[in-house]
Design a protein around this nucleic acid. Structure first.
Ligand SMILES: [Zn+2]
Ligand SMILES: [Zn+2]
Ligand SMILES: [Zn+2]
Ligand SMILES: [Zn+2]
Lengths: 158, 158
DNA sequence: CCTTGTTTGCTATAACATAGCGTTGTTTTG
DNA sequence: CAAAACAACGCTATGTTATAGCAAACAAGG
């Protein structure tokens, strides 16, 4: 189970964790990396979880505002850099947006399926590209984002 | 030949066209789409060809400047939108850069291998992702960019 | 020629992101 | 514990990327 036709887990069975579980996971990952899960970081990670999908840095900044005075861009960008470095958040390149990650990628890149109608995003481990890499090219990271229509929105459109 | 282990052409044998050929191709594609290849567009496409790799919009703007007075951002962004719409140029999302395309994608997306050491980019037709799409998801376009080290730079580093 | 639509130039502004610095708070070390 | 070292934070300022909107120039078709 969890194995697809390529012989490794693409996350098809991935059960989305609850918000509490996601927060706990973030706390644990920070500890494992010897990093601090400060109140500010927890606050921002909570907003990312609540967003429940890709969110833009400046929207995050707006959400941070009421409880946090008048935060400036570096505040949110620093947290995003931190979480991205720990693999807890991904940047969705073509949306200029950020999204939490529940996966244990372990060297895999992420692969996103993004519905442009309802804005929902499904994440998986990246499909294996090893068979079609130019000879000798060493991949350090991959950006893989598929844009289109999810099953529900496709059905609704018909 | 030109067929890889997945049974379709990924462009492994793709011979880079000369600059003149690339310009001619652009002219032809414009005609086929009933669009105008104006002097401004030709000028900008020429700069994109000369760049011979990903180039940023504002760098393009600088190159345009000497011959063209004082062009403003919309000038270059409009041309980039035009060429992108016709498939003559791709945006490299994670670089905020633009690059000419010699491929006949015909519904395929592009897939890029980008060396972060020498900045050279190899483009191919995208690897087929149809086997690992979430059930019912209809992909309209894909962003696939691999970052790492090309064969030459890997060898040079060792 | 006149109409219609496209392309271009321009001003202005929006949206996204980082540099650098001083302060505060935490951790480490003697 | 005290001093030193480091990490996180707040802030100002600026850099970078991209678009909106309008008017003039231009091309195409009747
Ligand atoms: Zn992930
Ligand atoms: Zn949808
Ligand atoms: Zn292409
Ligand atoms: Zn290289």
């Amino acid at each position: 189970m969890g194995q697809d036709h390529h012989g490794h887990d693409h996350g098809h069975d991935h059960t989305p964790a609850s918000k509490e579980e996601r927060m706990e996971n973030a706390r644990r990952v920070c500890q494992q990396h010897g990093e601090r899960f400060t109140p500010l970081r927890e606050h921002i990670f909570g907003l990312l979880i609540e967003a429940d999908g890709p969110i833009k840095a400046y929207d995050l900044l707006d959400l941070l505002r009421p409880e946090h005075g008048s935060p400036k861009p570096p505040t949110v960008y620093r947290a995003l850099e931190f979480f991205t470095r720990l693999g807890l958040v991904h940047r969705v390149e073509a949306l200029n947006a950020y999204i939490t990650c529940d996966h244990m990628h372990d060297g895999h890149s992420a692969e996103f399926f993004i519905c442009e109608t309802c804005d929902r995003v499904q994440e998986r481990h990246a499909h294996d590209h090893s068979e079609c890499i130019p000879k000798g090219f060493v991949i350090k990271r991959s950006v893989i984002e598929h844009y289109g229509s999810c099953v529900d929105c496709t059905a609704a459109a018909a």
